[in-house]
């Protein structure tokens, strides 16, 4: 029994080692960390819609109205081979019709996202980023994400845009840009 006792004490010491390591490194913000997309790194490859273990994906598009140009020809709404500037499905980038277009005033239109329809494919994001102001971007929704220990999309993301964020910063917004000097 002496041997087993020694073995037990040795293992108990080993089990205490991780705590020592944790104390030395310093504590990080309490609570598990959450997955989020860094919009600075995202290249809109489309994997957010296909690699999530949930179907439909926990990633959805967000529209930051503060940086939107409210353009009649929205490059996030319309693709480049559009027939007409209307809401016909053949003119839209969005495969599910989640991006809605509404006339406001003058030559300006408001574009909003229907969350129920958005699947996180990022086509509108790409169009807006390529030819527009980049006010559309993808984010992981906290009410949908199940917080896997290893995110399936994070493994597949070509630009390593998936980062872990603490509880008090669940979203990574794009900053409101400065007006260009004219």
């Amino acid at each position: 029994m002496e041997r087993r006792d020694f073995f037990q004490k040795a293992l108990a010491v080993l089990l205490a080692l991780p705590f020592v390591g944790w104390l030395r490194r310093g504590k990080s913000a309490g609570g598990p960390l959450l997955w989020q997309i860094d919009p600075k790194k995202c290249i809109q490859c489309g994997r957010c819609a296909t690699e999530c273990v949930l179907k439909p994906s926990a990633v959805k598009c967000v529209h930051q109205y503060a940086s939107c140009g409210y353009c009649e020809f929205c490059s996030g709404f319309f693709h480049n081979q559009y027939r007409q500037l209307d809401t016909g499905a053949e003119n839209q980038r969005c495969p599910t019709g989640a991006l809605k277009r509404r006339y406001v005033e003058g030559p300006y239109f408001e574009y909003t996202i229907d969350e129920q329809l958005c699947n996180g494919c990022g086509r509108c994001v790409k169009g807006c980023a390529d030819f527009g102001n980049g006010s559309l971007f993808l984010q992981v929704r906290r009410d949908l994400c199940v917080n896997c220990n290893q995110c399936g999309i994070a493994m597949a993301c070509p630009s390593q845009a998936f980062v872990r964020v603490p509880h008090d910063q669940p979203y990574l917004y794009k900053h409101a840009p400065k007006e260009p000097a004219t």
Partner: peptide, 18 residues
């Protein structure tokens, strides 16, 4: 294309919009 919030089109001055 990676780029980050370049305002190609200025934000409009709205009269009656929130």
């Amino acid at each position: 294309m990676i780029f980050f919030a370049q305002m190609r089109f200025p934000r409009p001055d709205f009269e009656d919009y929130v």
